[in-house]
């Protein structure tokens, strides 16, 4: 999956508990033009399951999940980058996530989930 050209909009939901991180993400996606990538920062353990589930239910694309182990400001959290369908359609990506059905990719990602090349 190609990373978006423009730096994504960042939503900071660190310290918030479910369902607020997903709510903040949904609000940001609704606010920005279609296709904008939104980076969600969250500490809630439920977000690890709920962000991918939200992406699947809404037919969005999860571009990246990065565990940030330590940072000058803020400490341990996870960053999720999500964008609307249109951003991937132009890249002729395979049809994104169909609604809940058998044959989905493995449900539980191996924990901790990291993207190659990231801290």
């Amino acid at each position: 999956m190609t990373r978006p050209m423009t730096p994504p909009v960042t939503v900071d939901a660190r310290g918030l508990r479910c369902p607020l991180p997903v709510l903040r993400l949904a609000q940001a996606l609704a606010r920005e033009p279609v296709g904008t990538a939104v980076r969600l920062l969250a500490t809630d353990p439920a977000a690890r399951t709920d962000v991918p589930a939200f992406v699947r239910m809404r037919g969005l694309t999860l571009l990246e999940v990065v565990d940030v182990v330590a940072e000058a400001d803020g400490g341990e959290h996870t960053a999720y980058v999500v964008c609307g369908l249109s951003a991937t359609q132009s890249e002729a990506a395979p049809p994104a996530h169909p609604p809940a059905s058998p044959g989905m990719p493995p449900a539980a990602p191996p924990w901790p989930l990291t993207t190659p090349g990231e801290a």
């Binding site: 439920a46 399951t49 589930a53 699947r56 239910m57 989905m104 449900a107």
Partner: peptide, 11 residues
Amino acid sequence: VLAAMGALTHG
């Protein structure tokens, strides 16, 4: 259980 399935856990 919900987490292992990848199902939505909130609400």
